[in-house]
Design a protein around this nucleic acid. Structure first.
Length: 581
RNA sequence: GCUCCCAUAGUUUAACGGAUAAAACAGUGGUUUCCUAAACCGUAGAUCGAGGUUCGAUUCCUCGUGGGGGCGCCA
């Protein structure tokens, strides 16, 4: 048979082809091939059922007709069950062949890349300058990084952009506070950004209490936006200090960006936004502000999208429009993905509606726009973690605590290890645990922050997956250089554990595909955990070190493929793996 | 007032309209002269309520209950 990494896709294509010349099937028939419950086979096609319903046919009869014209092949056994499920059970030889065809990193990675990759901009992390990152920032950063890696794995050209909040009204207040305190930005102590946060808090209190301070803060902002040299110098310094502070976090998390333009980058492009939207009559004046309504929309017919405040200043709606236009124009992004908190859903819906009208009016195709939103991290009171009152846990503190706890476990298991090696392993394990805890559940869910949840290292966690990888490396170290020859002589999977593990391996391409389609990394996490569980079970049942070379061969082949899938999968999640734990 | 999201074992979660609702943690009972016990094998335990659509509903629709979010000059 032709080599196909993605067997369900192959089955789906065969079903579609068979349906082509078989009335009442039409071209909109979707076979819906999925992983099956092992009781029924390896894959199941459910698509006949909804199709029959839509067309008033008997689903069971339709399924019979379809498999009657399906070419017979030795790769699988086809059967019909229940109201019209079509089940496929792979033959031993087909499974064996598949394992041999896709057991190396290169073949696997090549097969994952699609032909028509796009240029995609991913907008994520995006903290505000002059503030420290706290636990609330972890989601956008981790999810955005993982989605970027997944999309690259699929062959897309991804441009990662950290859209910093570096140009808001808060700078008037902060600049005033700095000047009133006579603070020297070159000498703010050990944690300069923490000091900036304090200054901002003081300034915020002052402008609430004093009319005069409020007026002065506004003046500082106007001066900054007008290009005042002193204020610009201070602003730049604040931005640099903030970036240094963010970099500490990004380095630990293994997160990187191609750009960190931030809102300030677009400050000279907002005029063009007003002009274009006015020219095309997309916006209107309302109560002194420039706003966009969407009369055709249930909600946004009356809920305005404010793109220019009544005092003439721009806001985030304006910079977001300018940013979107820039990414389309300069980066030729065919698609833009925004990874932000779900509370901004209205904003992005309005942004997308407005942008689409703008592009349409100019006869251009708008980029495909996706808002990948996630639930809020809540405090113990079930309310969102706030910066204002109560100090949320700093992200750096969370990460350091994760490393500290992992260090203890590593040291306990390997008392002789050098400190640098303990640190290296603890970073992979502790930070992996934190990332996995966030990535492994559906991103749209809110969750209450808890150390216990984020730092768990047993059960369905990253360390469990890393442990499986380390065990496989250990086996290959013990076998030595003869492993390749043994794999060449592998027999087909025979024992219960071998067959179950081999079968689980088949579903890897599906997991990747689903995670990308829905832009939800948790689908991949679920699969990797199931794979690791299947491996652990196999590991306990069937020893690799046995006398028969063909048995060793298949077990080594299964181990190697499992290891590669776990490594590719964890890499796509942004989680490191280790050869020893 | 308008609108959006959420509700699954004790707890935290999974289930793309599909077959007997799946795990982890916490319980509980077992496994180590054997490739790393961060493990493995048992055991017990759940779909907020009421209707509806469907051959089939945790999933879709309506109503209700409970929790949270957004809605004119913050991002």
């Amino acid at each position: 048979m032709e080599k196909s990494h993605d067997i369900p896709k192959l089955i789906g294509a065969e079903l579609c082809k068979a349906a082509e010349s078989l009335p009442p099937f039409t071209s909109d028939f979707d076979p819906q091939v999925r992983a099956a419950d092992p009781r029924f086979g390896d894959f199941q096609a459910n698509g006949v059922l909804p199709f029959a319903k839509k067309n008033g046919e008997n689903p069971r009869d339709l399924a019979e007709k379809l498999i009657a014209v399906l070419p017979q092949r030795e790769d699988w056994v086809v059967s019909i069950a229940g109201p019209g499920f079509i089940n496929f059970s792979l033959s031993e030889s087909c499974l064996h062949q598949w394992l041999e065809d896709f057991s190396r990193e290169k073949e696997i990675k090549d097969s994952l890349a699609i032909e028509d990759g796009q240029r995609i901009a991913v907008d994520f992390s995006s903290p505000n300058t002059a503030k420290q990152m706290h636990v609330g920032h972890i989601r956008s950063t981790i999810i955005g990084e993982s989605l970027s890696r997944l999309l690259r794995l699929q062959g897309h050209e991804v441009v990662k952009d950290n859209h910093l909040g570096d140009w808001g009204t808060q700078f008037g207040i902060l600049l005033l506070a700095i000047k009133k305190n006579g603070a020297n930005l070159d000498d703010l102590g050990e944690e300069p950004v923490a000091r900036l946060e304090d200054l901002y808090r003081e300034g915020n209190l002052a402008v609430k209490e004093s009319e005069d301070d409020l007026r002065q803060a506004r003046e500082e902002l106007v001066k900054l936006q007008g290009g005042d040299e002193e204020n610009l110098r201070l602003w730049q310094k604040i931005r640099d200090l903030s970036m240094d502070s963010f970099e500490q976090v990004y380095r630990l998390l293994g997160v990187s960006f191609d750009h960190a333009h931030g809102e300030s980058f677009y400050r000279d492009q907002v005029e063009a936004v007003y002009q274009a939207l006015e020219k095309h009559a997309i916006c209107q004046e309302d109560a002194g502000a420039l706003v966009v309504f969407h009369p055709e929309h249930k909600r946004f017919a009356k809920q305005p999208f404010i793109i220019r405040k009544s005092d003439g200043a721009s806001n985030y709606a304006t910079t977001d429009l300018a940013t979107l236009a820039y990414r389309s124009r300069e980066w030729k992004s065919r698609r833009i993905i925004y990874v932000t908190d779900g509370r901004q859903r209205d904003h992005f819906e309005q942004l997308f509606l407005t942008a689409e009208k703008w592009f349409d009016a100019e006869g251009r195709t708008p980029p495909q726009l996706s808002h990948v939103w996630f639930g809020t991290i809540l405090g113990e009171d079930n309310k969102a973690i706030k910066t204002r009152d109560g100090q949320p846990v700093k992200l750096l503190d969370l990460l350091n605590e994760a490393i500290r706890r992992a260090s203890e476990m590593v040291r306990e298991k390997n008392p002789e290890l050098a400190e640098t090696e303990i640190r290296r392993r603890a970073e992979a394990i502790g930070l992996g645990a934190v990332k996995y805890a966030d990535l492994s559940q559906d991103r749209t869910l809110d969750y209450v922050f808890s150390w216990e949840k984020l730092l768990a290292m047993q059960g369905n966690t990253a360390p469990y997956l890393q442990y499986a990888v380390a065990r496989i490396h250990s086996i290959f170290r013990k076998i030595g250089p003869g492993a390749e020859d043994l794999i060449k002589d592998a027999r087909a999977p025979q024992t219960d554990a071998e067959k179950k593990l081999a079968r689980k391996l088949l579903f890897f391409p599906l997991a990747i595909e689903q995670a990308i389609k829905e832009l939800k990394p948790h689908f991949l996490c679920t699969y990797l955990f199931e794979l690791a569980t299947e491996f652990s079970s196999f590991y306990n049942q069937d020893k690799v070190m046995v006398p028969e070379p063909e048995t060793q061969g298949i077990r080594l082949l299964l181990c190697r493929t499992t290891r590669i899938y776990l490594e590719i999968g964890l890499e796509a999640l942004g989680i490191e793996t280790l050869e020893e734990m």
